[in-house]
Nucleic acid binder design. Structure first.
Lengths: 372, 372
DNA sequence: TTGTATGCGTTATCAG
DNA sequence: CTGATAACGCATACAA
């Protein structure tokens, strides 16, 4: 921008009016004579004027920009979809989004927060917040904050997912198909410490629900079938070793499971690799259900998966942010969204099973959506 | 930011000095007395001052922000990686990045360009530019532009990929393993019209190289084995139908191919689904090579793939942008990067083949990198 | 209906 | 070494 760009003054001169008048026609408010308006509009065209949003932001104290702090967009397509959704809704409302990946690193998250304060974004969205202190920093700067999926502190708006509902749908689907030895590969509650806001972490909720569903069906949970670990990998590239390893171990069991329920589609990729290696077919030899519904349609076979409401997550988060921007004193709101099960090719009755059980789950969605 | 944030003036008052002095210690330039400096620093701490980058940008005519216009980040992990790389290098240089997905839509791309002009970004990077007119708009606003991977116009810097080299590595690998019936699934040159800047489009380059390699090996290219179409899908979610369909057709051939070379890892997912359905094993029954090296390590079996230099692409693009920002009159530069082949589990000699051919390609990288 | 004047928070120029 | 002071481009209260 070396060659000083066109300003209001240039347009004003070209149209033979004052800057104020030009500003009025640009922003479409205030009284402007019909003839002057068209003269100004012509001048805008002629000069190729573009409002300077930076200057406007300085004057109005609104940057029409929000910050989105993400764990690591490259770690899981889940983040890509959420980011995209936030961005889309922001755009529809005249906002742009700044992204920052903290990589699970508190120091980086703090950098993100400081950078956003310096740029005077109008609000900050976290997917996921790492450190409560960083949220406090934002609150001290009076910036609205929205937390997505994981709630670190209770003083901001949040959009959560009903995880137990997701697990229940998957488990009932498998149990309905006749499975009784269902393995669970997921996140270790001990590795994902949570704030005191919620009684249970997401990992605990999922694990508990898995066990509850088994018991409801009269099945005694077998500890051998539960494999926990880190299920959000940050190594960026490279394959999933966690799902691979656990699956291999499960296959080595004396009495192997007939179905696998894994905590993310990423884990499912590792599971599929182990199964491929063992020359087992899905769902013929073993059924597989994923979580997130990200990679699910791209895998062979196409995966049955619990779909996270990623689009709604992002959209709702932006809406909550916008509400807080427009009324800074409004009370924080927490919205919980429901996941739904997408049945594809990776689930079927256990081999040797005679009864068809459930309606032969056709490809498609079993929706279940609600807002609390 | 309702409660007016702390400004230079607040700090100045707290320290009993002028704003100019505070500015000097903040920016670390100009002479400042030792004692004043520490007094100011204390005041900065006490007040929790954060420089207002918006105001600074207005004054310095530098926003320390760049715009990145992407085809569609959700369409292919390739974009995610490039975006991430641009962003990382930007961050390391004190820049933030605005993202915009044009979805192959010229009108949206124009919106992106206008939005970036209004926000006075310091430069714009395209992955990929859709319409030359939009680049012209930017140039008229005197904004540096860098094009990644596809060069739409010749008047800006660009970072390209040596596609023929990538295809050659893959083909020599397969031919070396003993394959002679190698199918090619890729982009149809007719569907991806290119500007006149390059003699051939990327699609033409790839196809030509495929044929050249066959001929070099004394193999007469079989038109039946070439399947072209749209290989960048924008439907966002949902599976890849292109790779699936083509693969199914190829398998129905009287004399089926012993190896498949597909233009993107996304296409490979469809191919693997078709193969899974046909109960064919990879690489036992048929070999498979992907392109991009994005999903490759996540598939079963892990895919041999031509790796795009995504990190370097992004990094170099930002460097070229920065160079143009710092010296607006510098001549545009074009950098070409080389891909490399990553050999994994999906390639082996054709079934029935006796000669071990090549050194039994161990897992790992066959690097080949260069900058022209 | 239109113009004038002021300030948003910085940086930069020029005195002192 | 430090302090006034004038922009940067825009929006807006107030005059005319």
């Amino acid at each position: 921008m070396r060659p000083r760009s066109v300003t209001l003054l240039d347009v004003a001169r070209a149209a033979g009016v004052s800057r104020a008048t030009v500003a009025r026609v640009i922003n479409g408010d205030g009284y402007v004579g019909e003839e002057t308006r068209s003269r100004v509009e012509a001048a805008v065209q002629a000069t190729g004027y573009r409002p300077n949003v930076v200057a406007r932001g300085l004057r109005t104290q609104r940057s029409y920009t929000i910050g989105h702090i993400v764990l690591e967009i490259g770690a899981n397509p889940f983040f890509t979809h959420v980011v995209r959704a936030v961005e889309g809704e922001a755009l529809a409302n005249g906002y742009k989004t700044f992204l920052f990946n903290h990589k699970g690193n508190t120091a980086d998250e703090r950098l993100a927060v400081e950078s956003f304060i310096e740029r005077r974004v109008d609000a900050v969205i976290f997917t996921y917040a790492q450190d409560a202190a960083n949220i406090a920093l934002l609150r001290a700067a009076a910036m609205p904050v929205v937390q997505i999926e994981r709630q670190r502190t209770g003083d901001t708006s949040a959009v959560l997912v009903d995880n137990p509902a997701g697990v229940r749908m998957a488990m009932r689907h498998l149990i309905g198909l006749g499975h009784r030895r269902i393995a669970f590969i997921g996140g270790d509650p001990a590795l994902y410490p949570h704030a005191r806001i919620q009684p249970r972490s997401i990992e605990e909720e999922r694990l508990d629900t898995y066990r509850d569903c088994l018991r409801e069906a009269g099945i005694d949970p077998d500890p051998d079938l539960v494999r926990l670990g880190r299920y959000i990998k940050l190594g960026a590239d490279g394959s999933d070793s966690e799902g691979y390893r656990h699956t291999r171990d499960l296959l080595a069991l004396a009495e192997r499971p007939t179905a696998l329920f894994v905590g993310t589609d990423m884990l499912a990729t590792g599971a599929l690799q182990a199964l491929y290696e063992a020359r087992l077919r899905v769902p013929d030899d073993i059924a597989l259900v994923g979580f997130d519904d990200t990679l699910a349609p791209h895998l062979a076979p196409k995966l049955t998966s619990v779909a996270q409401p990623m689009a709604e997550l992002g959209l709702t988060a932006f809406q909550l942010a916008l509400a807080a921007i427009e009324d800074p004193r409004s009370a924080p709101r927490v919205v919980t969204l429901a996941p739904h099960l997408v049945v594809r090719q990776s689930t079927a009755p256990p081999s040797g099973s005679t009864r068809p059980a459930d309606p032969p789950a056709r490809e498609g969605e079993i929706a279940s959506r609600q807002t609390v």
